[in-house]
Design a protein around this nucleic acid. Structure first.
Lengths: 127, 127
DNA sequence: TTTAGCTAGTATAAAATTTATAGTAACTAT
DNA sequence: ATAGTTACTATAAATTTTATACTAGCTAAA
């Protein structure tokens, strides 16, 4: 277990989270404070467990702040810490790139697949 | 299977790859053209299968260009396409953030775990 | 002429992670 | 009493990732 050397990109990735949902949770929280149910509705196909795990991970890494209010039933709000807000530039560049380079590619590949009757090549695995 | 709506961030993430290795492969390729063996050596703990899968994925999405030379044994080089180069800004911001916010956190948490004898809280799962 | 070594991978099974599904507490509203 | 709310947890099943060994097609050394 030699974790000695770790570049800044690895550091960032490890803190943000290896999971595939972190960036999408962050995307939602950049819009402002949100509740569990709102996040679940906004993020397509995320399971409550995956959401809980992602939020806990981000919380432990001081990116997300969890605030529980003693209402009935309990109300829990999630927001970004300062460190979390600092991630905005990454997301911004990602959005820019996705907007410029992501156009129709998925649709094209899906069409390709349909026409030639081959496996969906877009993701590395099945969904 | 409704893939109808997809924000730019999702587009970017889907193209870059859900896998946990894509960003690290990209990091290496920003340094210039590299070969399979070089990438494997440079990226800690990546298995040849994971590397192959990641490279194929990036290739299919036109981010990485694979060039095979008919030498003996065969020589294969991987480099970034123009679209791949355009990802540089994302990586740059990630590196910046990681440099500023990633310092010692892992070490601190590991120490915390040792002292209080709790599970490693840094990753979402076990490694 | 066996032996080992190289590159760029595959094949397979085992391990780990992620998902789906159902269920929980502790209430409120009807 | 019944259904509905929120923020989750538990469990097993499905999927993904990893480890391990193996391949082709050569070269270079002993």
């Amino acid at each position: 277990m030699e974790n000695a050397v770790e570049c800044s990109i690895e550091k960032a990735l490890n803190i943000i989270g290896g999971g595939k949902w972190s960036f999408l949770v962050l995307r939602e929280l950049f819009e402002g404070t949100k509740r569990f149910g709102e996040l679940q509705k906004a993020i397509n196909n995320i399971s409550p467990k995956a959401l809980t795990d992602t939020l806990r991970h981000l919380e432990r890494n001081e990116i997300v702040i969890r605030t529980a209010y003693p209402t009935v039933p309990v109300t829990v709000e999630y927001s970004l810490s300062e460190k979390g807000h600092a991630l905005h530039k990454i997301l911004k560049e990602m959005k820019l790139w996705g907007g410029l380079n992501g156009r129709n590619i998925r649709g094209c590949l899906n069409s390709f697949c349909n026409i030639f009757n081959v496996n969906e090549p877009f993701f590395m695995g099945k969904r």
